[in-house]
Design a protein around this nucleic acid. Sequence first.
DNA 1: TTAAATGCAAAAAATTTGCAGACGT
DNA 2: ACGTCTGCAAATTTTTTGCATTTAA
Lengths: 134, 134
Amino acid sequence: MKHSEELLRSHGIKVTPQRLTIVDELYGRIHLSIDELYMAIKEKFPSISLATVYKNINAMMEKRFIKEVKIPNQKSRYELIKEPHSHVVCQKCGKVEDVHIDLSTVAKEAMEKSRYHINEDALIFTGVCPECAS
Amino acid sequence: MKHSEELLRSHGIKVTPQRLTIVDELYGRIHLSIDELYMAIKEKFPSISLATVYKNINAMMEKRFIKEVKIPNQKSRYELIKEPHSHVVCQKCGKVEDVHIDLSTVAKEAMEKSRYHINEDALIFTGVCPECAS
DNA sequence: TTAAATGCAAAAAATTTGCAGACGT
DNA sequence: ACGTCTGCAAATTTTTTGCATTTAA
């Protein structure tokens, strides 16, 4: 069984061609905004409606297998949930990439200083990517 | 001269009662969404229009003395720019607080791993505040 | 067979714009 | 006096909703 189909099935959400395309797209490009997603899907699936994309993104977020990445000065993007990681975003070209950094130490410090019981973190670094730097 | 007036003046933006109220509001409550801001200001300044709030928030962001804080599962909030800091947000009551943590070590790690030249970070911890925990 | 998903159009929500009059410098 | 800001209404943009039809299980 295809990876994307398995993902939908295991989260108790109906497997439709539209949804498979959305998930496949997210496997391939990792971070996509609603309209990037919509346009990308329209190529493979011209009849899809924007409302369907919205409905599915919301459904998948409720089922907790994709999540929204809120990026400074950009539209939100969506990604499949995998192991915890942070993001770097290029302020020149807008590119977004994953970066794996252990945040347990800072999370511990945040708990001590804030007295909150922390269970998630979202860290986004803004800077200039190697391509734009050269 | 009032602190808020000085702030506007020093950023080359005209001092109006509406703007003073916006800045004062942000001094007092630290993190406010557009409509929290709008409603709060309406009390002191019933004639203010929502468009004015938007225009001013955008103007102040361009002048770089306030910034948007994008929070998971919530509307964006805005804050006056001060020394760098992170945020904790309570997933029960929605409260947002500052927490001061030194991120230079993780930023360095992000630079090494991503090869980006990092110059900003935005870190938000999600958890449960002491009040909601008890 | 049946509950859920799709696609459309319409509605609602969020944000921006244009412009005449008011106001700050 | 001049250029900017305000407030209103209208325009755009973004997201959600209702509903008839189709589709997955």
